[in-house]
Design a protein around this nucleic acid. Structure first.
Lengths: 132, 132
DNA sequence: TTGGTTGCAAAACGTTTGCATGTGC
DNA sequence: GCACATGCAAACGTTTTGCAACCAA
């Protein structure tokens, strides 16, 4: 499950992991690219994509598409923090800590014959600020 | 909530709705485009996009992006059928009829101050066929 | 030296848009 | 006739890829 190919040390990969660590929510490639530039650690866009791709295969990073956006977001594969409450006005994302799906998976598995490996849950609404 | 703009009769729109009706799962634009072609009802790709866009605004059709795919899928806005069990091997999609999120939304609303409007749930696994 | 890593430019991909033409009402 | 519907080609934004140079081990 770890390291499906050989990785060499790379400063750029370290920088990107640091950015993903410092932010608590999923980030899009643009944001990471810009953040690197602002830190004077510019990395080419294709390299950002390539690094993220490997980290995803590696299981270090999780790639998700939220809503019907057409761009991917990336976050560290931490424990918990897998679901988000998303404000459709300001796009603020708040982690949902309790995951209520585990029990449901069990009954689904029995009813459908599927061997269930995971799930994705997003909840949408207006945050307190935007809900005037 | 209905008909946010004037729609005129259009054969192409009818054909697309028929295809969405006959299939029980979300379809991508390619599939719809190809299906039309095979029925000798060819419609240009941009027209397919434009028709679907209007049907989405109209609330006749729901647009979703599943997993970390980079293309949208469309399905009729039927009652229920909002969640899917997806086989990560063969991409088979099975509707989940019970929606267990309603109750959770209530407590989330209280805890977060969010005014909750909806949610998205997908469950991933291997279907019986693919789970050898 | 070997093979992963990078930058650049170009291509690929899904989607959107401008414009001229066609068509329902 | 007006406004929506359509086809075509071009543009767009995101992501991927080919290639040559670079660098960790």
């Amino acid at each position: 499950m770890e390291q499906q190919f050989n990785l060499r040390f790379s400063k750029n990969r370290q920088y990107i992991i640091e950015i993903l660590e410092s932010e608590k929510i999923p980030l899009c490639v643009d944001f990471i690219f810009e953040k690197l530039r602002l830190k004077n650690k510019s990395v080419s866009l294709s390299t950002v994509y390539r690094i993220l791709e490997k980290l995803v295969i590696n299981n270090t990073v999780v790639k998700t598409i939220f809503g019907d956006d057409l761009k991917a977001k990336f976050e560290l594969n931490r424990q918990g923090h897998k679901h988000y409450l998303i404000c459709t006005e300001c796009n603020d994302m708040v982690p949902i800590h309790n995951c209520p799906i585990g029990e449901i998976e069990k009954s689904l598995q029995e009813n459908t014959g599927f061997y269930i490996k995971g799930h994705k849950l997003e909840v949408y609404g207006h945050c307190a600020k935007c809900h005037g």
